[in-house]
């Protein structure tokens, strides 16, 4: 131990890592447990509809359900490719 370390504030402790890991993990676990069963199916069907018009990647669609006490918000995030190739509707 150097003499200087007595004067310094301690460096970033491991507790910060613990907090960050928990925040990420629990956000994930809560979403997995509380989400209704239809979300994956919904995601597939939304993707199918979008694909009729625009070419999108499976990974570029995120479906998230946030619940408050009084209401729920269904958030659908679709990342479109930079150049939207228009397709004629079938």
């Amino acid at each position: 131990m150097s003499l200087m370390s007595l004067f310094r504030r301690p460096t970033r402790g491991t507790a910060v890592a613990a907090r960050e890991r928990l925040q990420i993990l629990l956000a994930h676990e809560r979403a997995g447990l509380s989400g209704p069963d239809f979300l994956p199916q919904l995601q597939r069907e939304i993707l199918d509809v979008i694909r009729k018009y625009v070419q999108v990647d499976d990974q570029r669609v995120q479906v998230k359900l946030d619940s408050d006490q009084n209401y729920s918000v269904l958030e659908v995030n679709i990342e479109l490719p930079t150049v939207v190739e228009r397709r004629a509707p079938r």
């Binding site: 402790g13 507790a15 910060v16 928990l22």
Partner: peptide, 15 residues
Amino acid sequence: VERGEMLKVEDVQEI
């Protein structure tokens, strides 16, 4: 907690 080795009350409560 002071040494940054243990989660703070505030952290646990917030989580």
